[in-house]
């Protein structure tokens, strides 16, 4: 596969160096200039500007149009989304080459591809990168740090490292494979397969982490004359170990499902409930 791609690259305008520069600019600026109005558009344009200049060598008009074109609304997940940058560059290359012929690639095709793919790709990236990879790395860092180990403070850096490697790989393959192969890949079952497996790993880990890190139990006991005190937590443990942490996760889950994701309102509620139940000794955080 890789030797195949090397062959393709020899016939193309942009070198690895150009692609790395483009990726570096994207990587640096993707969230810096994020605004409510266009989200990642400015970063997208900024990232591509150098490569576009090279593709539209002497064609000022084409270059200007391309810059303006890529300032339009754009938002996706930054890591997997880099495949879109790659494909767009390959399309711009085609457009720049065929500017005088009648079958030149139209602007609508490029913008259509971008806006059509940014949603589905964001879904993939959020699942794999932010829903699976990030919490696993941070959980590992947390458990090391909780044991007082120095390395725990360094482990979070594995995440940006992984993002850089995956993101650049996505952009390069997008550029070399082009629009048709990427669309085909999206439609093939392979991506779904990958998401499914990553989701399984993610859910499995969320279960393990919930059980490890959600610490809630009840100190309630009822004592009667001439009898052993009844410890509520012991009864709960006989029914199901971890029933309270489980109730916490799914209580929140169903709150979000039914009421919408009002994150801060829920945090407030949780704190109020914690203070009340903690104050009266109904629950304890261990």
């Amino acid at each position: 596969m890789s030797s195949n791609l090397d062959e393709i690259q020899k016939q193309r305008e942009l070198t690895n160096r150009d692609l790395m520069k483009t990726y570096a600019r994207w990587y640096l600026s993707v969230e810096v200039s994020n605004s409510y109005e266009r989200l990642q558009a400015l970063a997208f344009c900024n990232a591509l500007s150098g490569s576009l200049k090279k593709l539209y060598k002497d064609d000022d008009q084409g270059y200007r149009e391309a810059l303006i074109r890529h300032l339009q609304f754009y938002n996706s997940e930054g890591t997997f989304g880099a495949v879109i940058h790659g494909v767009v560059l390959s399309m711009e290359e085609e457009k720049a080459k065929s500017k005088d012929s009648s079958d030149s690639l139209s602007e609508e095709v490029i913008t259509g591809f971008k806006t059509g793919l940014m949603g589905p790709i964001a879904g993939i990236g959020d699942t794999l990168i932010w829903g699976t990879l990030k919490p696993i790395i941070l959980a590992l860092a947390s458990s090391l740090a909780l044991s007082g180990l120095f390395i725990g403070g360094i482990v979070p850096f594995l995440f940006p490292l992984a993002v850089i490697l995956i993101g650049y790989g996505m952009m390069k393959s997008g550029y070399l494979l082009g629009k048709d192969s990427v669309t085909k890949l999206m439609k093939s079952g392979l991506i779904n397969n990958l998401i499914n497996s990553a989701s399984i790993l993610g859910l499995f880990m969320m279960g393990a982490l919930s059980s490890t890190y959600i610490k809630v139990s009840t100190p309630l006991e009822f004592s009667f004359k001439n009898a052993e005190p009844i410890v509520i937590q012991d009864i709960l443990d006989q029914i199901l170990v971890g029933i309270l942490p489980l109730a916490a996760v799914f209580g929140i889950y169903f709150y979000f499902k039914l009421r919408g994701q009002y994150y801060n309102r829920l945090i407030m509620w949780l704190i109020v409930i914690s203070l009340i139940t903690g104050f009266f000794g109904i629950l304890q955080g261990s």
């Binding site: 499902k257 994701q261 914690s274």
Partner: peptide, 21 residues
């Protein structure tokens, strides 16, 4: 009370990930 909050709040993050995946 704060101790209870510190114990329960991680559930929030896990619940959100379940929403996504």
């Amino acid at each position: 009370g704060f101790s209870v909050a510190g114990g329960i709040l991680p559930a929030l993050g896990f619940a959100i990930i379940i929403m996504v995946i």
